[in-house]
Amino acid sequence: MALLEVRDLKMYYRTLRGHVRAVDSVSFDIERGKALGIAGESGCGKSSMAAAVLRLLPANGEYHGGTIVMDGEDVLHMPEEKFRQNVRWSKMSMVFQGAMNALNPVHRVGEQIVEAILQHEEIPREKAVERAEGLLDLVGINPKRFGEYPHEFSGGMKQRAVIAMSLACHPSLIIADEPTTALDVMVQAQILKAMAELRAELALSMMLITHDLSVIAQTCDSIAVMYAGKIVEYGSVYDVYGNPVHPYAMGLVESFPNIHAERSAVRSLPGFPPNLLAPPPGCRFHPRCPLADEECMTEEPVLREVAKPGHMAACHKAEIVQQGVGIWER
């Protein structure tokens, strides 16, 4: 049994003009100790999905069905108080986007970690301080800096501190939403390297949300590509990068420049994502898809197995894409 099983999850935002279907019938699994990458353009619903899994919806967010099962327990329908006590932070925690804003500027960094521990566990303060120092050490920050304020830390160190905080209660799953987007390339590499080592050491599972496919290629075991609130391709990173079967995933993979490859034109996907208030009928990608025909405009494709076991795609034309035809050649 997988650590986290999400089935048909639907989360819509209520607006004056109707429902924005940010997460629309999404299903995926995260195995113990494995990492799943969620990729997609801005506005495709990937951050909304993280919020939905952690039950941290904004005021206008609503669940419209689905289940989230962690360790065999339905965590979506349990009372909020129980979820807060037993699940959030102690079983699944989060590394937020932009560490600069995730730390409270008027509290000492170490104290913020201690606070996270004491919120969830009844242990003496000294024990919590001891653990917080150990956590700082674990992520590569000198524990002597326990009493410093966030402004005394550099961007990379703040992000490390936020990671330490997410580990405070020994969770089994970490949800990281663009953990390195605001950081420089060199610091990004340091942080992701540290996260990979921590995951191996603590047997952590991870859900990594990012627009950067190269980060997922380097750190995750499987990948879900989202488009307009839906997962359009899902499978192991080797299958999806090696042989993408959805036109969108294929275009996205190809639009990433590889620094070691021969010099070539940088690809792009023409057009832009649809308005989620009124997504196009049929396949939501059809207005941008070079293969779209009558069927794509009317019939919504279901996520089905293509090519290999466990390699799924929601596309009527997956068999054509699978042959590796250069559908994005112009």
Binding site: S214, A217, Y238, N258
Partner: peptide, 11 residues
């Protein structure tokens, strides 16, 4: 610079 290719891993 990360390479968008899982078969070439290694930072």
């Amino acid at each position: 610079v990360f390479v968008p290719d899982p078969t070439h891993r290694g930072i």
